[in-house]
Protein backbone atom coordinates (compact mmCIF):
# COMPACT_ATOMS: atom_id res chain seq x y z
CA UNK A 1 0.00 0.00 0.00
CA UNK A 2 2.80 2.37 0.94
CA UNK A 3 4.59 1.75 -2.35
CA UNK A 4 1.37 2.40 -4.26
CA UNK A 5 0.80 5.75 -2.58
CA UNK A 6 4.40 6.79 -3.09
CA UNK A 7 4.35 5.79 -6.75
CA UNK A 8 1.12 7.59 -7.54
CA UNK A 9 1.98 10.70 -5.54
CA UNK A 10 5.41 11.01 -7.16
CA UNK A 11 3.85 10.75 -10.62
CA UNK A 12 1.16 13.26 -9.72
CA UNK A 13 3.69 15.81 -8.52
CA UNK A 14 5.74 15.51 -11.69
CA UNK A 15 2.65 15.75 -13.89
CA UNK A 16 1.36 18.81 -12.00
CA UNK A 17 4.59 20.82 -12.42
CA UNK A 18 4.08 22.42 -15.86
CA UNK A 19 0.43 23.16 -15.03
CA UNK A 20 1.42 24.98 -11.84
CA UNK A 21 3.78 27.41 -13.55
CA UNK A 22 1.37 28.13 -16.38
CA UNK A 23 -1.74 28.35 -14.18
CA UNK A 24 -0.18 30.66 -11.59
CA UNK A 25 1.02 32.96 -14.37
CA UNK A 26 -2.45 32.94 -15.90
CA UNK A 27 -4.08 33.52 -12.50
CA UNK A 28 -2.07 36.69 -11.92
CA UNK A 29 -2.83 37.93 -15.43
CA UNK A 30 -6.56 37.25 -15.10
CA UNK A 31 -6.70 38.88 -11.67
CA UNK A 32 -5.51 42.07 -13.36
CA UNK A 33 -8.22 41.68 -15.99
CA UNK A 34 -6.34 40.10 -18.91
CA UNK A 35 -7.50 36.75 -20.29
CA UNK A 36 -4.63 35.11 -22.16
CA UNK A 37 -5.57 32.00 -24.14
CA UNK A 38 -2.15 31.88 -25.78
CA UNK A 39 -0.48 30.05 -22.86
CA UNK A 40 0.07 26.86 -24.84
CA UNK A 41 1.86 28.72 -27.62
CA UNK A 42 4.16 30.49 -25.14
CA UNK A 43 4.85 27.16 -23.39
CA UNK A 44 5.88 25.66 -26.74
CA UNK A 45 8.24 28.56 -27.43
CA UNK A 46 9.71 28.23 -23.93
CA UNK A 47 10.08 24.49 -24.35
CA UNK A 48 11.79 24.83 -27.72
CA UNK A 49 14.15 27.67 -26.77
CA UNK A 50 15.25 25.92 -23.56
CA UNK A 51 15.73 22.65 -25.41
CA UNK A 52 17.70 24.24 -28.23
CA UNK A 53 19.96 26.13 -25.84
CA UNK A 54 20.71 22.99 -23.84
CA UNK A 55 21.28 20.98 -27.02
CA UNK A 56 23.86 23.50 -28.23
CA UNK A 57 25.53 24.54 -24.96
CA UNK A 58 24.70 21.80 -22.46
CA UNK A 59 24.02 24.59 -19.93
CA UNK A 60 20.69 23.91 -18.19
CA UNK A 61 20.53 27.24 -16.35
CA UNK A 62 21.19 29.14 -19.55
CA UNK A 63 18.41 27.10 -21.17
CA UNK A 64 16.03 28.08 -18.40
CA UNK A 65 17.06 31.73 -18.68
CA UNK A 66 16.49 31.74 -22.45
CA UNK A 67 13.02 30.22 -21.92
CA UNK A 68 12.20 32.99 -19.42
CA UNK A 69 13.41 35.69 -21.83
CA UNK A 70 11.45 34.19 -24.74
CA UNK A 71 8.39 33.94 -22.47
CA UNK A 72 8.83 37.60 -21.50
CA UNK A 73 9.03 38.66 -25.16
CA UNK A 74 5.81 36.78 -25.87
CA UNK A 75 4.29 38.36 -22.75
CA UNK A 76 5.20 41.80 -24.11
CA UNK A 77 3.58 40.90 -27.42
CA UNK A 78 0.39 39.73 -25.70
CA UNK A 79 0.30 42.81 -23.48
CA UNK A 80 0.81 45.08 -26.50
CA UNK A 81 -2.07 43.42 -28.35
CA UNK A 82 -4.46 43.32 -25.40
CA UNK A 83 -3.56 46.35 -23.30
CA UNK A 84 -2.23 48.88 -25.78
CA UNK A 85 -4.20 47.88 -28.87
CA UNK A 86 -7.20 46.73 -26.74
CA UNK A 87 -7.88 43.72 -28.96
CA UNK A 88 -10.56 41.12 -28.23
CA UNK A 89 -8.68 38.99 -25.69
CA UNK A 90 -10.12 35.56 -26.44
CA UNK A 91 -9.47 35.78 -30.15
CA UNK A 92 -6.02 37.35 -29.91
CA UNK A 93 -5.01 34.64 -27.43
CA UNK A 94 -5.88 31.93 -29.93
CA UNK A 95 -3.80 33.86 -32.46
CA UNK A 96 -0.82 33.88 -30.09
CA UNK A 97 -1.29 30.14 -29.50
CA UNK A 98 -1.25 29.35 -33.21
CA UNK A 99 1.73 31.67 -33.72
CA UNK A 100 3.69 29.93 -30.94
CA UNK A 101 2.74 26.48 -32.23
CA UNK A 102 3.74 27.36 -35.78
CA UNK A 103 6.93 29.22 -34.92
CA UNK A 104 8.19 26.53 -32.52
CA UNK A 105 7.48 23.84 -35.15
CA UNK A 106 9.23 25.84 -37.85
CA UNK A 107 12.28 26.58 -35.71
CA UNK A 108 12.43 22.94 -34.65
CA UNK A 109 12.28 21.73 -38.27
CA UNK A 110 14.92 24.13 -39.52
CA UNK A 111 17.28 24.34 -36.53
CA UNK A 112 17.09 20.81 -35.07
CA UNK A 113 15.40 18.76 -37.80
CA UNK A 114 14.71 15.59 -35.91
CA UNK A 115 13.72 14.48 -32.43
CA UNK A 116 16.73 14.37 -30.11
CA UNK A 117 17.20 13.95 -26.40
CA UNK A 118 19.19 16.09 -23.95
CA UNK A 119 20.32 15.52 -20.39
CA UNK A 120 18.01 17.70 -18.35
CA UNK A 121 17.76 18.63 -14.69
CA UNK A 122 18.05 15.39 -12.75
CA UNK A 123 16.33 14.64 -9.43
CA UNK A 124 17.93 16.39 -6.49
CA UNK A 125 17.56 14.90 -3.04
CA UNK A 126 17.12 17.50 -0.34
CA UNK A 127 19.26 16.71 2.72
CA UNK A 128 17.34 15.65 5.84
CA UNK A 129 13.91 16.07 4.26
CA UNK A 130 14.53 13.35 1.68
CA UNK A 131 15.05 10.87 4.52
CA UNK A 132 11.57 11.41 5.93
CA UNK A 133 9.38 8.31 5.65
CA UNK A 134 6.96 8.40 2.68
CA UNK A 135 6.91 12.22 2.35
CA UNK A 136 10.67 12.28 1.77
CA UNK A 137 10.37 9.83 -1.08
CA UNK A 138 7.37 11.63 -2.59
CA UNK A 139 8.36 15.27 -2.29
CA UNK A 140 12.10 15.54 -1.88
CA UNK A 141 13.57 13.39 -4.66
CA UNK A 142 12.42 15.60 -7.53
CA UNK A 143 14.17 17.93 -9.95
CA UNK A 144 14.70 21.60 -9.19
CA UNK A 145 11.91 22.84 -11.45
CA UNK A 146 9.42 20.69 -9.51
CA UNK A 147 10.51 22.37 -6.27
CA UNK A 148 10.24 25.74 -7.98
CA UNK A 149 6.65 25.08 -9.05
CA UNK A 150 5.56 24.25 -5.54
CA UNK A 151 7.50 27.15 -4.01
CA UNK A 152 5.66 29.42 -6.41
CA UNK A 153 2.29 28.80 -4.72
CA UNK A 154 3.03 30.42 -1.31
CA UNK A 155 5.02 33.12 -3.08
CA UNK A 156 2.13 33.99 -5.37
CA UNK A 157 -0.31 33.84 -2.46
CA UNK A 158 1.86 36.21 -0.44
CA UNK A 159 2.34 38.72 -3.25
CA UNK A 160 -1.33 38.73 -4.20
CA UNK A 161 -2.72 38.96 -0.68
CA UNK A 162 -0.11 40.64 1.48
CA UNK A 163 1.63 43.25 -0.64
CA UNK A 164 0.57 46.62 -2.11
CA UNK A 165 1.47 45.22 -5.55
CA UNK A 166 -1.01 42.37 -5.08
CA UNK A 167 -3.67 44.81 -3.98
CA UNK A 168 -3.05 46.94 -7.08
CA UNK A 169 -3.26 43.88 -9.33
CA UNK A 170 -6.60 42.83 -7.85
CA UNK A 171 -7.93 46.38 -7.89
CA UNK A 172 -7.05 46.73 -11.58
CA UNK A 173 -8.93 43.53 -12.36
CA UNK A 174 -11.90 44.22 -10.11
CA UNK A 175 -12.52 47.94 -10.56
CA UNK A 176 -10.09 49.60 -12.93
CA UNK A 177 -11.89 52.95 -12.83
CA UNK A 178 -11.44 53.19 -9.07
CA UNK A 179 -7.83 52.04 -9.26
CA UNK A 180 -7.16 54.58 -11.99
CA UNK A 181 -8.65 57.41 -9.95
CA UNK A 182 -6.34 56.43 -7.09
CA UNK A 183 -3.35 56.80 -9.37
CA UNK A 184 -2.64 53.16 -10.11
CA UNK A 185 -1.42 52.78 -13.69
CA UNK A 186 -3.71 50.20 -15.31
CA UNK A 187 -1.41 49.87 -18.29
CA UNK A 188 1.72 49.35 -16.21
CA UNK A 189 0.11 46.76 -13.90
CA UNK A 190 -1.35 44.80 -16.80
CA UNK A 191 1.93 44.84 -18.73
CA UNK A 192 3.65 43.59 -15.58
CA UNK A 193 1.21 40.71 -14.94
CA UNK A 194 1.09 39.58 -18.56
CA UNK A 195 4.88 39.64 -18.99
CA UNK A 196 5.22 37.75 -15.70
CA UNK A 197 2.65 35.24 -16.98
CA UNK A 198 4.67 34.87 -20.19
CA UNK A 199 7.85 34.19 -18.21
CA UNK A 200 6.09 31.56 -16.10
CA UNK A 201 4.65 29.93 -19.25
CA UNK A 202 8.20 29.87 -20.63
CA UNK A 203 9.37 28.05 -17.48
CA UNK A 204 6.39 25.68 -17.78
CA UNK A 205 7.58 24.75 -21.27
CA UNK A 206 11.19 24.39 -20.09
CA UNK A 207 10.04 22.13 -17.24
CA UNK A 208 8.88 19.73 -19.95
CA UNK A 209 11.73 19.96 -22.44
CA UNK A 210 14.75 20.13 -20.11
CA UNK A 211 13.53 18.57 -16.84
CA UNK A 212 10.66 16.11 -17.14
CA UNK A 213 10.78 14.83 -20.74
CA UNK A 214 14.19 15.97 -22.02
CA UNK A 215 13.04 15.90 -25.62
CA UNK A 216 11.37 18.34 -27.97
CA UNK A 217 8.78 17.43 -30.56
CA UNK A 218 6.36 19.56 -32.54
CA UNK A 219 3.35 20.40 -30.34
CA UNK A 220 5.12 18.91 -27.33
CA UNK A 221 2.65 20.45 -24.87
CA UNK A 222 -0.34 18.83 -26.59
CA UNK A 223 -2.84 21.38 -25.29
CA UNK A 224 -1.56 21.59 -21.69
CA UNK A 225 -1.76 25.38 -21.84
CA UNK A 226 -5.52 25.19 -22.29
CA UNK A 227 -5.90 22.89 -19.30
CA UNK A 228 -3.79 25.41 -17.37
CA UNK A 229 -6.31 28.14 -18.26
CA UNK A 230 -9.17 25.85 -17.18
CA UNK A 231 -7.39 25.25 -13.86
CA UNK A 232 -7.49 29.00 -13.17
CA UNK A 233 -11.31 28.92 -13.33
CA UNK A 234 -11.31 25.65 -11.42
CA UNK A 235 -9.12 27.24 -8.75
CA UNK A 236 -11.32 30.35 -8.58
CA UNK A 237 -8.35 32.70 -9.13
CA UNK A 238 -6.63 31.64 -5.90
CA UNK A 239 -3.13 30.08 -5.96
CA UNK A 240 -4.03 27.55 -3.23
CA UNK A 241 -7.11 26.22 -4.99
CA UNK A 242 -5.29 26.25 -8.32
CA UNK A 243 -2.75 23.97 -6.64
CA UNK A 244 -5.54 21.68 -5.43
CA UNK A 245 -7.05 21.58 -8.92
CA UNK A 246 -3.71 20.80 -10.56
CA UNK A 247 -2.97 18.07 -8.04
CA UNK A 248 -6.44 16.57 -8.39
CA UNK A 249 -6.17 16.42 -12.16
CA UNK A 250 -2.65 15.00 -12.13
CA UNK A 251 -3.38 12.52 -9.33
CA UNK A 252 -6.31 11.04 -11.22
CA UNK A 253 -4.07 10.84 -14.30
CA UNK A 254 -1.36 9.14 -12.26
CA UNK A 255 -3.92 6.69 -10.86
CA UNK A 256 -5.19 5.78 -14.31
CA UNK A 257 -1.64 5.04 -15.48
CA UNK A 258 -1.00 3.06 -12.31
CA UNK A 259 -4.20 1.04 -12.70
CA UNK A 260 -3.16 0.08 -16.23
CA UNK A 261 0.47 -0.73 -15.42
CA UNK A 262 -0.61 -3.04 -12.64
CA UNK A 263 -3.05 -4.82 -14.90
CA UNK A 264 -6.18 -4.06 -12.93
CA UNK A 265 -8.88 -5.19 -15.26
CA UNK A 266 -10.76 -2.02 -16.18
CA UNK A 267 -11.15 -1.12 -19.88
CA UNK A 268 -8.51 1.45 -20.86
CA UNK A 269 -11.19 3.66 -22.40
CA UNK A 270 -12.77 4.00 -18.99
CA UNK A 271 -9.56 4.71 -17.07
CA UNK A 272 -8.68 7.37 -19.63
CA UNK A 273 -11.97 9.13 -18.97
CA UNK A 274 -11.30 9.32 -15.23
CA UNK A 275 -9.40 12.65 -15.07
CA UNK A 276 -12.09 14.35 -17.09
CA UNK A 277 -15.01 12.79 -15.24
CA UNK A 278 -13.53 13.84 -11.90
CA UNK A 279 -12.92 17.35 -13.24
CA UNK A 280 -16.51 17.72 -14.42
CA UNK A 281 -17.92 16.35 -11.15
CA UNK A 282 -15.81 18.73 -9.07
CA UNK A 283 -16.66 21.71 -11.29
CA UNK A 284 -20.37 20.89 -10.99
CA UNK A 285 -20.07 20.57 -7.23
CA UNK A 286 -18.25 23.88 -7.02
CA UNK A 287 -20.80 25.70 -9.17
CA UNK A 288 -22.89 26.23 -6.03
CA UNK A 289 -20.15 28.32 -4.49
CA UNK A 290 -20.97 31.12 -6.92
CA UNK A 291 -17.48 32.37 -7.51
CA UNK A 292 -17.28 35.31 -9.82
CA UNK A 293 -14.34 36.01 -12.07
CA UNK A 294 -12.57 39.39 -11.73
CA UNK A 295 -15.13 41.99 -12.80
CA UNK A 296 -12.92 43.56 -15.44
CA UNK A 297 -11.70 40.26 -16.90
CA UNK A 298 -11.61 40.35 -20.69
CA UNK A 299 -12.41 44.09 -20.74
CA UNK A 300 -9.89 46.53 -22.14
CA UNK A 301 -9.61 49.66 -19.99
CA UNK A 302 -10.96 52.89 -21.42
CA UNK A 303 -10.57 55.92 -19.22
CA UNK A 304 -13.93 57.68 -18.89
CA UNK A 305 -14.23 61.34 -19.74
Amino acid sequence: MEAIIIGIAKSAIRLATPYLYASIGETIGQLSGVLNLGVDGVMLMGAFSAFYTVLKTGNLWLGLLVAIVVGAIFGLLIAFINVTLKAEQGISGIGVYIFGLGLSSLLFSTMVGTVQTVSGFSPLSIPWLSNLPIAGEIFFHQNILVYGAFALIPLAWFILNKTPLGLSIRAVGQNPEAADSLGVSIVRIRYFTVVLGGMLSGIAGASLSIALLNVFQQNLTNGMGFIAVALVYFGAWRPTTVLIGALLFSTVNAIQIWVQVHGINIPSDFTLMMPYIVTIVVLAAMAKRRIHPPAALNKPFERGE
Binding site: G7, K10, S11, R14, L15, P18, L208, L212, L213, V215, Q217, N219, L220, T221, N222, M224, N253, A254, I257, W258, Q260, V261, H262, G263, S268, D269, L272
Partner: peptide, 25 residues
Amino acid sequence: INVTWIGSYSDVALASEAAQTHIDA
Protein backbone atom coordinates in the same frame (compact mmCIF):
# COMPACT_ATOMS: atom_id res chain seq x y z
CA ILE B 1 3.77 -7.86 -19.28
CA ASN B 2 2.11 -4.58 -18.22
CA VAL B 3 0.28 -2.67 -20.95
CA THR B 4 -0.79 0.98 -20.75
CA TRP B 5 -2.87 2.83 -23.34
CA ILE B 6 -2.39 6.54 -22.88
CA GLY B 7 -5.33 7.56 -25.08
CA SER B 8 -3.32 9.79 -27.39
CA TYR B 9 -0.81 9.56 -30.23
CA SER B 10 0.86 12.80 -29.22
CA ASP B 11 0.82 13.20 -25.41
CA VAL B 12 4.55 13.01 -24.76
CA ALA B 13 4.19 13.94 -21.08
CA LEU B 14 1.77 11.12 -20.33
CA ALA B 15 3.94 8.64 -22.26
CA SER B 16 6.90 9.71 -20.17
CA GLU B 17 4.97 9.29 -16.92
CA ALA B 18 3.72 5.86 -18.05
CA ALA B 19 7.35 4.83 -18.62
CA GLN B 20 8.29 6.05 -15.13
CA THR B 21 5.43 4.02 -13.63
CA HIS B 22 6.42 0.91 -15.59
CA ILE B 23 10.01 1.15 -14.37
CA ASP B 24 8.80 1.75 -10.80
CA ALA B 25 6.75 -1.44 -11.18
